[in-house]
Design a protein around this nucleic acid. Structure first.
Length: 369
DNA sequence: AATGGGTCCAACCGCCACATG
DNA sequence: TCATGTGGCGGTTGGACCCAT
C-alpha cells in the first residue's frame, strides 16, 4: 500500500511543482488528454509519479478551475451539502463547478468549521451544540478570531440560478434534520462530476457539459495546421488567470485578484482570432458564461496566469513556443489505439462551462429537498 | 528588524474499489 | 480466485505566509 508502484521504481520528485513542470504537464494534457496517468510523467518528461500529475492537474492546472475566495452562495451550498453528505468532498465538489474537493476540504477545515462553531452549530452533526460544547468551543473560537464576519445567519435562503428558480431555505428545520432520507439518498447516489470532463466531450452532447471523447478532441488537435497546437502554433504559458467567478454563469462578475489580472485576461481573450470571430462579443462571454466557447481559442491564446497564486506569479512570466509539431502530431494514446475523425472540425467545438451545471441537472437534487 | 505562534493550502499518504490478466 | 496495476478519495502534514509582539 501507500505509494504506487510507479512512484517506487525510480527516484521521483516530490513537493511543490515548479512552473516548468506545470508547463510540461499542462502542455501535455491539453494536447493529448489523459489516457493513463501512470504514463503521463514519462511521456510529458516529468520526474513525478502519475498520481502526483493527476492531482496537480485536477487541483491546479485544469483550465476550468475557479480561483479566489468562495462566494457566499458557494459557502452556503457547501454547508448545506456537508450536512447531507458529510466529508464526501468529491461529491460536494461535484456540486460546485470549478472547485476541487481539496479546495473545499481546506476551506471547510480552515474556515467553515469555525464559523459553524461560532454559531453554536456542531460542524459534524449540523445541530446546535450542547451548552457544554458551546463553552468548550468558545474557548477555541475565542482564541481563533474569524478573519471574515459571519454573514450567513439562519435562516438563509439559497437561491440558485436554476431554470426553475429553486430555492433552498436553510432554517432551523433544516439543521434539525429536516432533510428526508430520500434526499440524502439522492446525494449519496449522485455520481460525482468527472474532473477531467473538461476534455471529455461526447459528440452531440455538448449541452450537458464538456463531454467530447478525448479521442475526438485529440483528433481535433492534430487534424490540421489550423488546430490550436498545429505546427505553426506558438502559445504562451505566461501565467494562469485567477478566475474568481463569484456568480456562476455571469461573466460580469468574473474577478481577478489584482489590477493586472484584468489586462491579462483581456489580452487572453481579446486576441486577434477572438476579435475576428466574435465581433458580437458573444464568444468572449461564452467562455465564462457557459454559452459555449471555443476550446481551441482558449487553448491557443491561453496566456495563462496563476494570478491567485501570487507566489507563483513571477515565476510564470516565461513564454514557451510550441515545440516541434512532429513531436505531437500523434498522441501516444492514439497510436494504434484510437480512431480518428479528421473530417470533423473540433477546433470550434462548442463548450459549456462547468459553471452552467449550476443551472442544470446538477441542481435537480434540490428540487427534492 | 526579529521572532514566534497561528493559519492556510498544496501535496502526500494510506486505503479502497475496480479492472485486467 | 488471486495478484497486480491504477484511479480515486479522505485524512494528514510540511512549509510558506501572515501577523502580533
Amino acid at each position: 500500500m501507500g505509494r504506487h508502484s510507479c512512484c517506487v521504481k525510480q527516484k521521483l520528485r516530490k513537493g511543490l511543482w515548479s512552473p516548468e513542470e506545470d508547463e510540461k504537464l499542462f502542455n501535455y494534457i491539453t494536447r493529448f488528454g489523459v489516457g493513463c496517468w501512470s504514463s503521463v510523467p514519462k511521456l510529458a518528461g516529468l520526474q513525478r509519479c502519475g498520481k502526483s500529475c493527476r492531482l496537480r492537474w485536477i487541483n491546479y492546472l485544469r483550465p476550468d478551475l475557479k480561483r479566489g475566495m468562495f462566494s457566499q452562495q458557494e459557502e452556503d451550498l457547501i454547508i448545506s451539502l456537508h450536512e447531507v453528505l458529510g466529508n464526501r468532498w468529491a461529491q460536494i465538489a461535484a456540486q460546485l463547478p470549478g472547485r476541487t474537493d481539496n479546495e473545499i476540504k481546506n476551506f471547510w477545515n480552515s474556515c467553515l468549521k469555525k464559523k459553524l462553531l461560532k454559531q453554536g452549530i456542531d460542524p459534524n452533526t449540523h445541530k446546535p451544540l450542547t451548552e457544554a460544547h458551546v463553552k468548550e468551543e468558545k474557548k477555541i473560537t475565542d482564541t481563533t478570531p474569524m478573519q471574515t464576519p459571519l454573514s450567513h445567519g439562519l435562516p438563509v435562503p439559497l437561491t440558485f440560478p436554476s431554470s426553475q428558480g429553486s430555492t433552498l431555505l436553510i432554517d432551523s428545520n433544516y439543521y434539525d434534520g429536516g432533510l428526508t432520507e430520500a434526499s440524502r439518498e439522492i446525494f449519496l447516489n449522485k455520481p460525482a462530476l468527472d474532473p477531467l470532463s473538461y476534455y471529455d466531450f461526447p459528440m452531440g452532447a455538448a449541452q450537458s457539459g464538456f463531454n467530447l471523447p478525448m479521442t475526438q478532441y485529440q483528433t481535433s488537435l492534430k487534424a490540421s495546421d489550423q488546430s490550436p497546437f498545429g505546427p505553426n502554433s506558438s502559445y504562451g504559458f505566461l501565467s494562469m488567470p485567477s478566475l474568481t467567478n463569484s456568480d456562476h454563469g455571469n461573466v460580469s462578475v468574473t474577478e481577478f485578484s489584482d489590477n493586472n489580472s484584468a489586462s491579462k485576461i483581456s489580452s487572453l481573450l481579446m486576441n486577434d482570432q477572438v476579435k475576428e470571430s466574435s465581433s458580437n462579443s458573444s464568444n468572449m462571454s461564452n467562455i465564462y458564461t457557459g454559452g459555449g466557447c471555443h476550446i481551441s481559442s482558449m487553448m491557443e491564446n491561453a496566456g495563462f496566469s496563476w494570478e491567485g497564486d501570487n507566489k507563483f506569479d513571477p515565476l510564470f512570466q516565461f513564454q514557451v513556443n510550441a515545440t516541434k509539431s512532429e513531436d505531437f502530431k500523434t498522441s501516444p494514446w492514439e497510436e494504434g489505439q484510437l480512431q480518428t475523425h479528421s473530417s470533423i472540425d473540433y477546433t470550434s467545438f462548442p463548450l459549456t462551462a462547468l459553471s452552467e451545471d449550476l443551472t442544470g441537472e446538477n441542481f435537480d437534487v434540490f428540487q427534492h429537498i
